[in-house]
Amino acid sequence: MTGGLNLLIALAMGLNLVALASSRLPSVIRAAATQGMVLGLLPLLLEQEFHWMVGLVSVGTVVVKGFVIPHLLRRALRAANIDREMEPLLGFIPSLLLGAGATIGAVALGGALPLRPEHANSLLVPGAFATVVCGFLLLMGRAKAISQVCGYLILENGIFLFGLLLIRTTPLIVEAGILLDLTVAVFVIGIIVDRIQREFDTLDTRKLTSLKE
């Protein structure tokens, strides 16, 4: 069981680096979407016996993160008629190196923190920390609104991964609420992206500079 779990988490960690290294926005969206779908499968692997709430969270995650959100983002992309992140605030190679460093650091940190015996051999904690840091890098290192949204999604994926540590004990209603909030968040972000595009005729957030001291 742990073998399959770790394989999927390692895949998610690899997708972090793919998202950090690619300059084409559709590939960033695809990386975030694939990662969301991979994570959606994990609750099913973690539970020994099938519970309908776990199934619901799993299906909900795959549908929302794998299909609904990427669809919204691709639509915004078509409307804005952009394809590439031309001048990132943090270059692709430096961000890839930082991401790889963060992944190694997360594995070391996961080894240093006290874990319950059933989590000791899994990559859950390192995977979660690595994904959170990579999401942050994407959020702060890119200038296009779409890339920033993808960064936010990857950050949320990392937190979701961490939440799986608690899935056996915390009531699943909380997970359901979190998923709902995330959906609404991205929906709202999508609308704002759309409005920014219409108002400024660009999705480059560097143009958003009229508010400052």
Binding site: L139, A145, E156, T169, T170, I178, V188
Partner: peptide, 29 residues
């Protein structure tokens, strides 16, 4: 245009803050 800029920054900074507090809640759990 200024209102959209403010909203975008609010969403980005506020969203990141709220994500961190969720991670913190999980750590406390």
């Amino acid at each position: 245009a200024r209102a959209f800029e403010a909203t975008w920054k609010y969403l980005l900074v506020g969203g990141t803050g709220i994500a961190l507090s969720l991670l913190g809640s999980f750590c406390l759990g």
